[in-house]
Amino acid sequence: MSSIAITMPTPENPALALAQEASSSLWMDAYRRLSKNKMALAGATFILIEAFICLITPWIAPYGFEQQNLEFTLARPSFAHWLGTDTLGRDLFTRVLYGGRVSLMVGILASLVSVVVGVIYGAVSGYAGGKIDSVLMRVVDILYALPFIFLVIILMVYFGRNIVLLFVALGLTEWLTMARIVRGQVISLKQKEFIEAAVSMGIPTRFIVLRHLVPNTLGPVIVYLTLTIPSAILSEAFLSFLGLGVQAPMASWGTLISSGVEVMEVAPWVLISPAIMLSLTLFSLNFLGDGLRDALDPKGAKD
């Protein structure tokens, strides 16, 4: 519409064999570029250390996560309790450690579900176009409109209080937006010359979608993914309100934060410590995500 001269990116070599080679070297390049990005590496290191700490939590936690001292509630941070105690006199440091186990698992698994489903669904819909696209997208619209609470309640009634349900329920809500984003991206990609060229070469659709379209949508997907993880971690607190998820007295960062809000004015440390841990994790995930995105973007390489 305006006078922008749209110069399409250099088409990739359309030959099947060469495309394969190009894509494998793409991953190599990506790895090389990632290892040069200091912030991304720092992020990755932090996540790895955190994951390790979560694994060994039961052996290093100074107290039991359920261990109460009713006469020592809402205590300030001290040598005995590094991060203070909560409203039942439980050690917050211990609870934040245990909460991390739950939250990291929830965030990562639920996001994986949403990525796998969302990317495939969105890519298929966007690539197929036409009737298939509008049917698939209307299905997404319908799912958006279904009241989430009822879905969760009914899931629980028919499948019991299963931890797997938690990931399904969280993934279920998050993949919808992911699918829309990927679809939008794919629609704009598929008119590009390299895809058109691949189509005219007779390369199978499945191959085009998986090898060309999906990798090229990774940028926005990773960005959105770094947004999905915290939203899944926080939604877990809401699901536990509905009775799905970890049961008290086990904690998660989401439930720790929501109970911290209640005492924000009288004992701010109860809120601050889980919030800081969640933020640090997300900082790391973000730097890692941005690094990955830049690394996976063949165009960004020469910048």
Partner: peptide, 14 residues
Amino acid sequence: RLTRGGLMEIRSLD
């Protein structure tokens, strides 16, 4: 976040 991501993406285009 989405703005930054989108802009970075486009900025690298030819």
